[in-house]
């Protein structure tokens, strides 16, 4: 499946391999892996809206496929408790040429950050806090509407 929401970890190498194995129509594979930043954060818990999350991610994939000619798309988002350094999110795009793969991967991340129903709660020495939405993420997503 192109879109997955799961508690388990994933292996970026395996995921990239799966996108391109046995094909000769792909010239570019681009991937992004998001990790839990450490610092004062001892743990992060990812909450989501089961049912809607998958639907939202599928819509984001569909939107990307409408805008660019893509040979493959993978979106994986983890949920539940995650330690610093753990992988949270993975997007990969396969296309004939690199410009399209880079652009589409960035689009997927920008849209995922502002449209998919996930919420992060960080634990620190001072207690737990819900992460605030960032205006810069909205700005990053908004630029795709102008094109």
């Amino acid at each position: 499946m192109a879109v997955r929401v799961q508690e388990e970890d994933f292996d970026p190498t395996t995921e990239l391999e799966a996108l391109s194995v046995g094909r000769d129509d792909i010239g570019a594979l681009v991937s992004f892996t998001g990790l839990v930043r450490g610092g004062d954060v001892s743990e992060m818990v990812l909450e989501h809206y089961p049912g809607m999350t998958e639907k939202a991610l599928e819509e984001i994939e569909e939107e990307a496929r409408k805008r660019w000619s893509l040979q493959g798309v993978t979106i994986i988002h983890r949920v539940g408790p995650l330690a610093p350094g753990a992988r949270i999110v993975f997007v990969a795009t396969a296309s004939r040429h690199r410009a399209v793969a880079f652009e589409a991967a960035e689009f997927l991340m920008d849209f995922l950050k502002t449209r998919a129903p996930f919420w992060k709660k960080e634990s620190t020495a001072d207690g737990a806090r819900w992460v605030d939405a960032r205006e810069t993420d909205d700005t990053a997503a908004a630029r795709w509407a102008l094109e």
């Binding site: 809206y49 939202a56 949270i88 129903p117 996930f118 919420w119 992460v131 605030d132 939405a133």
Partner: peptide, 24 residues
């Protein structure tokens, strides 16, 4: 489906309320 406060809830099965999303 994400919508706004003016949206109708007539006949809706499920209404979800939440803070701005922070995934990724």
């Amino acid at each position: 489906e994400q919508t706004d406060f003016d949206a109708s809830i007539v006949g809706a099965r499920e209404v979800a309320l939440f803070p701005p999303v922070t995934g990724g």
